[in-house]
C-alpha cells in the first residue's frame, strides 16, 4: 500500500456524495462519437495519401469509411443532445474557449469536404474538385481526430482533465490505428500497405501512450484500472496488440489475417475510448478524486490559481505569492480529523 492509498481512506466528504456531476453523456453516443470521429479524420488522411500516391482502391475505401464514420458520429452527437432539434445552435457562436464550439466549426468544415470528396470519387464527377476536397478533408481530419481529446480533457472530470497532456496523442495514435485497421480490412490487399503500416504503428504508439497515461501517478488514474473501465481498457489492449501483431506478421500475405487484424485494431481503438470514457465517469462518482488531490495541494501550501502555468497541472511553485494572497481562505488546516465517510 502506497502512502497515498492510506490517505485516501480518511478524506472528508458530505455523506460520501459526489462533488461533481457525472457527465450527462451516453457512452455509446460520446465514446462512439470520439471513436467514429477519430476513424473518420484519420481515414481522410489515409484517403488523401492514397489519392496522392495513386491507390484508387484504398482511396475509395478510406473516403467511404470517413464519410460513413463522420455521418455516424454526427448522428451520435445530435442524438446525445438534450434538445436534438437545437443542433444548429452549435453554430450560433464561435468560441475558442469551447472545444465543442471549435469542434463544431471543424466538423462543419470537415464534413462537407469529406462528403464532397467521397461523392466525387464514387459518382466520378468533378474529379479535380474531389481531389481538392480530399486534401482539405485530410488536413481538417487531423483536427477531427484530435480535438476530441481536448473536448473531454477540458472538463472538471478528474481522470480526463488529469490526462490532458497525453490524451491528444493517445487519441491521435488510436485514430490512426483504427483508420489503418479498417482500411486494412476493407481495401484491396495490394493497395493497403500504408494502411497496415498506419495501423501497426498507430497501435504501438497508442498502446505505449495509454499505458503511460494510465500510470501517470495522478490519483484519478486508478480509475483506468478499476471496474468497467479497467476491463474495457484491458480488452482494448488485447485487441490492439493482437490485431497489430497479426497485421504486422500476416497482414500482407493473408486476406483473412489482414481483415481480422484490422478489425481487432479498430475494435481496440474503440474500446480505448469507451474505457477512457468510463474511467472519467467513475472519477466523478467518488468524491475522493476531487478532495484528496485538492486537499494535498492546500496542505502543501500550494493552492491553485486560475492563471495558466501555475497550480497543480504544472506544479509551478506559487507558495509565497499564492499563499499570501489566499491567506484568508486557508485557515490552518485540520484535514483528517474531520469525519470520515
Amino acid at each position: 500500500m502506497s502512502p497515498r492509498r492510506e490517505r485516501r481512506e480518511d478524506f472528508t466528504s458530505y455523506y460520501g456524495r459526489p462533488i461533481l456531476k457525472e457527465p450527462t453523456w451516453e457512452a455509446l453516443d460520446i465514446a462512439g462519437y470520439i471513436f467514429a470521429g477519430g476513424l473518420a479524420g484519420a481515414s481522410s488522411i489515409l484517403a488523401a495519401g492514397a489519392q496522392h500516391s495513386g491507390r484508387p482502391g484504398l482511396e475509395r475505401t478510406a473516403k467511404l469509411t470517413a464519410l460513413t464514420a463522420i455521418s455516424a458520429s454526427v448522428v451520435a452527437l445530435v442524438h446525445d443532445l438534450g434538445r436534438p432539434e437545437r443542433f444548429v445552435n452549435m453554430l450560433r457562436v464561435a468560441k475558442p474557449t469551447s472545444p465543442m464550439s471549435v469542434g463544431s466549426w471543424i466538423l462543419s468544415a470537415y464534413g462537407p469536404l469529406a462528403g464532397a470528396s467521397a461523392a466525387a470519387n464514387v459518382l466520378g464527377i468533378f474529379p479535380r474538385a474531389g481531389k481538392a476536397a480530399g486534401i482539405g478533408a485530410g488536413i481538417t481530419g487531423s483536427a477531427v481526430a484530435t480535438y476530441t481529446a481536448v473536448l473531454i480533457a477540458d472538463t472538471a472530470v478528474p481522470t480526463w482533465h488529469d490526462a490532458h497532456s497525453r490524451l491528444p496523442f493517445v487519441f491521435a495514435s488510436s485514430a490512426a490505428a483504427s483508420a489503418g485497421g479498417v482500411a486494412a480490412a476493407l481495401a484491396p490487399r495490394a493497395e493497403s500497405g500504408p494502411a497496415r503500416r498506419m495501423a501497426v504503428v498507430g497501435a504501438a504508439v497508442e498502446t505505449a501512450l495509454s499505458v503511460a497515461m494510465e500510470r501517470s501517478g495522478h490519483l484519478s488514474a486508478e480509475t483506468f484500472h478499476q471496474g468497467r473501465a479497467g476491463k474495457l481498457l484491458q480488452l482494448s489492449k488485447a485487441c490492439t496488440v493482437g490485431g497489430a501483431v497479426g497485421l504486422a506478421l500476416g497482414g500482407r500475405s493473408s486476406r483473412l489475417v489482414s481483415a481480422l487484424g484490422g478489425i481487432a485494431v479498430a475494435a481496440g481503438s474503440a474500446l480505448l475510448r469507451f474505457g477512457v470514457f468510463e474511467a472519467g465517469r467513475a472519477s466523478t462518482r467518488d468524491p475522493k478524486y476531487v478532495v484528496v488531490p485538492q486537499r494535498e495541494r492546500l496542505d502543501a501550501g500550494r493552492p491553485a490559481s486560475w492563471q495558466p502555468g501555475t497550480g497543480a497541472g504544472k506544479r509551478v511553485a506559487v507558495e509565497a505569492g499564492g499563499g499570501e494572497a489566499t491567506g484568508t481562505t486557508t485557515a490552518p488546516s485540520t484535514a483528517g480529523e474531520a469525519r470520515t465517510v
Partner: peptide
C-alpha cells in the same frame, strides 16, 4: 443578429458576454 457576427461587431470576441 447572428451572434458570430455580433462577436466581432460588438466587441465580444470570445462570445461569452453580450454577443451571446
Amino acid at each position: 443578429q447572428w451572434p458570430v457576427l455580433r462577436q466581432f461587431l460588438e466587441h465580444d470576441p470570445t462570445g461569452r458576454h453580450h454577443a451571446a
